[in-house]
Design a protein around this nucleic acid. Structure first.
Lengths: 208, 208
DNA sequence: CCGCTAACCGACGAATGTGTCGGTTGAAAA
DNA sequence: TTTTCAACCGACACATTCGTCGGTTAGCGG
């Protein structure tokens, strides 16, 4: 896709990268069990056997993709938010960073968030780990705000609130994937409207 | 499971109901592609062939389960919320109704909400339809509140906000499934805290 | 120009899973 | 009791797909 590499031979590492990218697309589109290694191979421009030269099994390939894409997400979001600023600004920056990731790498977002349960036990465990650390780091980032709500960031119920925030935000991103015409700024606005301001829309409440 | 029916023969309709219930459990636990008809058959106390006496294919069985369980959800939530009361009360009642469904029929909740994408094209279409009408009816129910936020309930962005609400709420329910010790009332409280009141926690804001 | 490493392929074996079909037998009706 | 319907089962045919293995050849280093 990137350039013209018409059926030429590639160095191992480059081929591996291509395979991971292809696997990401197919896994995200079809789900783990529904994708055949054959499809990934075709998308990567090789035969099935080549996949097994790089990864010992479908399962390991899937896990690799999950972890690499999650690392990208963490890097992307981490790079765009500064620890400083007012609570409202921080939340806004984080939402914008996440939506920006969803815009840049839609397949990665889908793979990481859409398929909540599915797939096999070992992969499920990996997903769990990823989700767990994600929730924790958001909880840390929102520590001050949670405390202001009367919640101890370490307490169980605070984690629940964070899950609500994350799930809700991704639900919005999911909706966005089906309505791509809407500009990102408007999405951030909508999310702030609910999450920061609340549905009660008290007089004097200001999104900014 | 329900009573002692030790390998006895059952009337068709009863067997069919048992199959649907068994299919619900297995599909919810493993996902569509990962479940074998054999598993469902065993869970239902019969052989694979019997499944095909009641349903022409795995796909149709899945679709049937989805639609029946969704009908149950709609009935459950519909029965518990009154159209009247203050906006805050209505939201609270709805949240409580949904969490109560999640408590009563955890497998149904997982099947309907967790597997967002996955499975095959035709099933995906059915899921889409269910989701679409669900979003729409919630938007109608919140019409007054959305308008108060300056959103036209028919507008695209209002639907996005509703998606956020639904996804966030279910994210909370998902978390609950892993922390069953927390009482339902506390969940409702947490959801109201964020969705109604907002993270900004403005002075004077009251959850009640 | 030559040799050798490693990127690549085709074909095979085994496992799993869907849907079909003919036949068997419990149990309700006559 | 006898008949009859339908609930039930075992076994088969066919398709799909994972993972393996031996061999082929591109292309870089000498």
């Amino acid at each position: 896709m990137a350039s013209r590499e018409l059926k030429k031979r590639m160095p191992g590492s480059a081929r591996r990268a291509r395979i991971v990218e292809a696997a990401l697309e197919v896994f995200a589109a079809r789900g783990y069990h529904a994708t055949a290694m054959e499809e990934i191979a075709i998308a990567a421009g090789v035969t099935r056997s080549v996949l097994y030269d790089h990864f010992p099994s479908k399962r390991v390939l899937m896990i690799t993709v999950l972890q690499e894409q999650n690392a990208l997400l963490v890097a992307h979001v981490g790079a765009r938010i500064t620890g400083s600023g007012s609570p409202g600004r921080r939340l806004r920056a984080t939402l914008d960073a996440y939506f920006s990731f969803a815009e840049d790498r839609p397949a990665a977002r889908r793979l990481l968030f859409d398929h909540t349960d599915e797939d096999d036990p070992e992969i499920k465990a990996v997903r769990w780990g990823i989700r767990e650390t994600r929730t924790r780091s958001v909880a840390v980032m929102l520590g001050r705000d949670l405390r202001r709500l009367g919640l101890d960031p370490e307490a169980e119920i605070a984690q629940a609130v964070v899950e609500l925030l994350i799930s809700g935000t991704d639900g919005l991103a999911q909706w966005w994937a089906r309505h791509p015409a809407v500009p990102r700024e408007q999405l951030v606005e909508a999310a702030m409207l609910v999450l920061w301001n609340g549905l009660s829309q008290l007089p004097g409440a200001d999104v900014r």
